[in-house]
Simulated scan of single mutants.
Amino acid sequence: MNTKNFTVSGKIIWLSSLALGLLVAIPKLAERHFNGYETVVNSAVTFVFALFVWYYNILTLPKYTARDIVKGFSPIRLVKSLALGIAVMFLLACLQQLLIDQLDFGPAMLMIEARGVLVNICFYMFIHYLYQNYLHQKIGIELERAKMDNLAAQYELLKQQVNPHFLFNSLNTLKYMVENKDDHSVDFILKLSDFYRFTLESRKLDMIPLSEELNILDAYTFLLKARFEEGIDITINIDPAHYTSYIPPFTLQLLIENCIKHNIVSLDRPLHIRLYSDKDNIVVENHIQLKRTKESSTGMGLENINQRYLHLLNKTIGIHPTDSLFTIKLPVVYEYRHH
């Protein structure tokens, strides 16, 4: 039988019920005045009741959810199962009385009800034990899957952080600045050094304060301005109250890199990128001016960020494209649950 992904073999259910029915027949076989008909009816009643207990308790198991993984032992469910079991056993006792007239209904009914309660409790505890094992296995599988997803996301992030194209372009820009004796050459070297120092310090962290992420972005923006000059305009207007919130490292840098990758950046057509607060979201927004020749893309940039938010917070980022704007909304994350 399969319910809510929890599986118990039908052979186990039917064979265990049959074995219980045969077990009940053993005392009858030892009696001096053995009555085969009465023994068969008595065993059949126990067999039917055991089947009922199996299927009822499996069908009423709580649904598995990631947020409410293990509810533990439920006295309420046990009481409901016992109450319904007593009612079903009473009906089976009445049926047994109809089939075997010579039985004294009072003592026979009491014995059957006591047997039913015992069977119900034993089966409930056994099913509960199987279900708890199932939950623990499912939790273990999901944890391993989450670890693998997180490792894959970190690997993809690391590859993008030390993007050889970005380093190549930065070194070319530096070469151009040195050849032209640009006064900002030293500042460029310092910012490039800061950026890669941030990369080494933050790559092992799941979350960093937004204030630190903005420091990374400041170094990255300086490098971009040195390369594109007035061809790129990045405006940051984030509420200072959000500076103490948390964000996966290099998220903003990756989003801006994604904007540059897909849009024209030139002095004639400057790319405008805005970062601002919108209630409980950090918004990254750019005007759409797509390149005529699209660069090769794996489609992993936004998916990588989305998977990290899903893994760490069980939330997803908002992606809102229009004809003129491309908007990404990142949920604001605080350290404490009550936020």
Rank of each mutant, 00 (worst) to 15 (best):
M1D: 10
M1C: 10
M1E: 11
N2A: 13
N2P: 11
T3L: 12
T3C: 08
F6T: 07
V8F: 03
V8T: 05
V8L: 09
G10R: 15
I13T: 11
L15W: 12
S16F: 07
S17W: 05
L20W: 07
G21I: 07
L23D: 04
A25W: 09
P27I: 03
P27W: 05
P27F: 04
E31S: 15
R32D: 11
F34N: 08
Y37T: 09
Y37E: 09
S43D: 01
V48S: 10
F52T: 02
Y56G: 04
N57T: 11
N57Y: 02
I58E: 04
T60R: 04
L61Y: 05
P62Y: 01
K63F: 07
T65K: 06
A66V: 15
D68S: 14
L78E: 04
V79F: 15
L82N: 08
L84K: 09
I86H: 07
A87H: 05
V88Q: 04
M89L: 07
F90T: 13
Q97S: 15
I100S: 08
G106A: 14
P107H: 08
M109F: 10
A114V: 11
R115Q: 10
V117I: 15
L118F: 14
Y124E: 03
M125N: 08
F126I: 08
I127A: 00
Q132E: 12
K138N: 10
G140N: 12
G140A: 14
E142T: 09
E142R: 07
L143E: 14
L143M: 14
R145P: 06
L151M: 14
A152V: 10
A153V: 09
Q154S: 08
Y155T: 13
E156K: 14
N163M: 06
F166V: 05
F166L: 10
F166G: 05
F166P: 07
L167V: 12
N169Y: 00
L171P: 05
L171E: 06
N172P: 03
N172Q: 06
L174T: 01
E179P: 00
E179W: 08
H184D: 12
D187N: 11
F188K: 02
L190I: 12
F195K: 03
E201D: 14
R203E: 10
L205R: 11
I208E: 02
P209E: 11
L214V: 01
L224Y: 06
K225S: 09
F228Y: 13
F228R: 00
D233E: 09
I234K: 03
D239Y: 05
P240A: 01
A241E: 13
F250Y: 06
L252T: 04
L254C: 03
L254F: 06
I256C: 02
C259F: 06
N263T: 04
I273C: 04
R274S: 12
L275D: 00
D278I: 07
K279L: 13
I282V: 15
N286R: 07
H287T: 15
K291W: 04
R292H: 13
L302D: 04
I305V: 10
I305D: 00
I305M: 01
N306W: 01
Y309G: 03
L312W: 05
L313W: 03
N314C: 08
N314E: 13
T316I: 06
T316N: 15
I317E: 00
I317G: 01
G318C: 07
I319V: 13
H320W: 06
D323S: 13
D323F: 07
F326N: 01
T327K: 11
I328W: 00
K329G: 03
K329N: 09
V332P: 00
V332E: 01
V333T: 08
Y334R: 08
